[in-house]
Amino acid sequence: MTITIMSGKGGAGKTTLSVSLALELAERGKHTLLVDLDVEEPNTGIFIDKQGDKRLEASVMQPVWNSALCSHCGKCTSLCQFHALVKLPDGVMIFPDLCHSCYACSDLCPVGALPMKPARIGEIVRYTAGNHLLFIEGILDVGQEISSVLVRQTRDIALSEDVEIRIFDAPPGTACAAREALNRSDLVIVVTEPTPFGLHDADLALKLSRASGKKTLLVVNRADGEFPEMEAFLKKENITVTATFPWIRELSQSYSEGKLDPKGFPGFYASLQTLAETILNSPEGAR
């Protein structure tokens, strides 16, 4: 089973819940793989006691201009919809950050002067993290503009691992990068916090998740006190809350130190148990 944990809003507690859930499922003897797909700001790994990294360079294919072969016909520059190639009197200039790797310029160059070559965009790292837990993270090089390709590559490597449960810690937001995570999942967990921002963004996350036709659970994190708008929200979305995680200052403190021990916080741990059981008892989990 593959689970995506997403939130729409950054800072709602995706990482806290992804790590806690992965630890809990591994402890229950399930072979679990935790995957950090927030390749722009990967920090799930901070909370994982991990060893034995295997690194894989992630790259995209981009055209490279071969001046010796070029006949200066200009076909490539008129083909490129992204204006990544410009024809100059003495050659072709390439803007790699505009390239979408569609291969049109390279395949259709009449003299083969634009071979495609790999260009590094980041790396994907795999670790073992205890008996039943594996951890994979994608890390985008700073300055790279397009992250969704690395999200997809990291996701696909994770999908090739032979485990019982995969947990994707999704990138924040609801744009293309988040979609890459959830469109290969069996179950989506939307994490929200009881604030207007939280609900606004959870609404977007639920829209994306439902548009993909995935079974979706809603969990509330950092609950402290009353938030009457929540009821109306649940009614409007026609969804129930699977688990509510309390706001605990000490937990925030231990999170800030890069430590997460769900068992140390009984109120939090009880909700985690509820969530884990709901997942394992769902039709998707029983498969």
Partner: peptide
């Protein structure tokens, strides 16, 4: 600004 460091942040 948006979260992250890729094209929207740039």
């Amino acid at each position: 600004g948006p979260p992250g460091i890729s094209c929207p942040a740039i």
